[in-house]
Write a protein that binds this DNA or RNA. Structure first.
Lengths: 191, 191
DNA sequence: ACACTATGTTTACGGTGCTAACACAGCATA
DNA sequence: TATGCTGTGTTAGCACCGTAAACATAGTGT
């Protein structure tokens, strides 16, 4: 059976199917609801409850996927950063991810993750660690924690502000340039 | 009549009443809905539609209030910043606002403001200008635009990350200290 | 006095998340 | 092979939501 359907009462791999159609709907811009996902998956409106406690649980699962993808984006793209301009590119990639997958990004960050030990928190922490490592590598003698917070905060803030239309740019390239500019400007202020 | 009720068919100042009870509910942590607000205001479920085109319009009105309050918080507190530490306190105040009024903050920033010329956009722009002015004053010879983006981005990013539980702190004081630390760390990296 | 306009009400529709009770299928064990 | 347990899906039904259409009421200007 593995991933395919099974023609009958039982679906075979509903959980995965729900996740993927939910992701499709989310990224497709359709307002995603448990019922809609079920409908799309060809299953009864309440079937998803066998696999997800509630709507939030589905969203969390999507968010986890998102964190994995973001992490992959960040360290695939160019290995670990070794210089300040590398860090700026990190920020650029972060913002680019947010703009490329806006709905997912909102699901990942839009609400507090209350569940202290769920996968989602772990995924976010992995991100934090990656950033701290990177910063520590570039500025080994500085306060790595504070710098990592600043770096993440800056990237995240710009991502949110562009995403929500509080800052404006006409193209992705312009966004990238502005993010780079902001990053370099604030890091060269003390010199 | 002015602000009070009028005992009868017509309410007198429903719009204001709706706004204030909506704000109360929002800040009170109750999930706010048009119907609930109407109920709370002692009026029929669809009465709000006479004053707000739809749910989003009410939310936008709340957001505008939020922007006004945030702006007041920022420049009331200590006049315009004249030094780098002053700017750090700006960021601290920004994050403090977000943590003090989380639901409002989410309404203000949680979704794109599509309406190009509504009050909400103007309010956000006012915020942007305030920041640009401040940065320009502290670093007159630098690229004020890039710096303003960076400053806002940093403050906003930290606000979101703390708000959504992606960064952790045990008290408001600790948050303030960490924001200050992040701000000072990243601005002293180039020296 | 009369129409007009603003404001509030009633009714209705389709959508939502979620629960409870039921139906079907596969597996384990006797 | 028969029995029943467990996992998975279905149906029915609840309370709520946003929104539109038709109606009712009052105050305002002519």
């Amino acid at each position: 059976m593995s991933t395919s359907e099974k023609s009958g009462y039982h679906h075979g791999d509903l959980r995965a199917a729900l996740l993927s159609t939910a992701m499709e709907m989310l990224e497709g811009g359709e307002p995603f609801s448990l019922r809609a996902v079920a409908r799309r998956a060809g299953v009864s409106p309440t079937a998803p409850y066998r696999h997800f406690k509630d709507r939030d649980a589905l969203e969390s699962a999507l968010a986890v996927e998102g964190f994995r993808d973001l992490l992959a984006d960040l360290d695939d793209e160019r290995g670990l950063p070794a210089s300040l301009p590398d860090l700026a590119e990190f920020a650029v990639a972060y913002v680019a991810f947010a703009l490329r997958r806006p709905a997912l990004f909102r699901v990942m960050f839009g609400k507090p993750c209350d569940d202290a030990d769920d996968e989602r928190v772990k995924a976010a922490d992995a991100l934090h660690e990656l950033l701290a490592d990177a910063l520590d590598r570039v500025f080994p003698h500085a306060d790595a924690t504070a710098l990592a917070s600043a770096g993440w905060g800056l990237a995240h803030g710009l991502a949110c502000l562009y995403l929500d239309g509080k800052m404006h740019a006409t193209s992705d390239e312009e966004v990238a340039a502005r993010v780079r500019g902001a990053f370099l400007a604030i890091t060269s202020v003390g010199s």
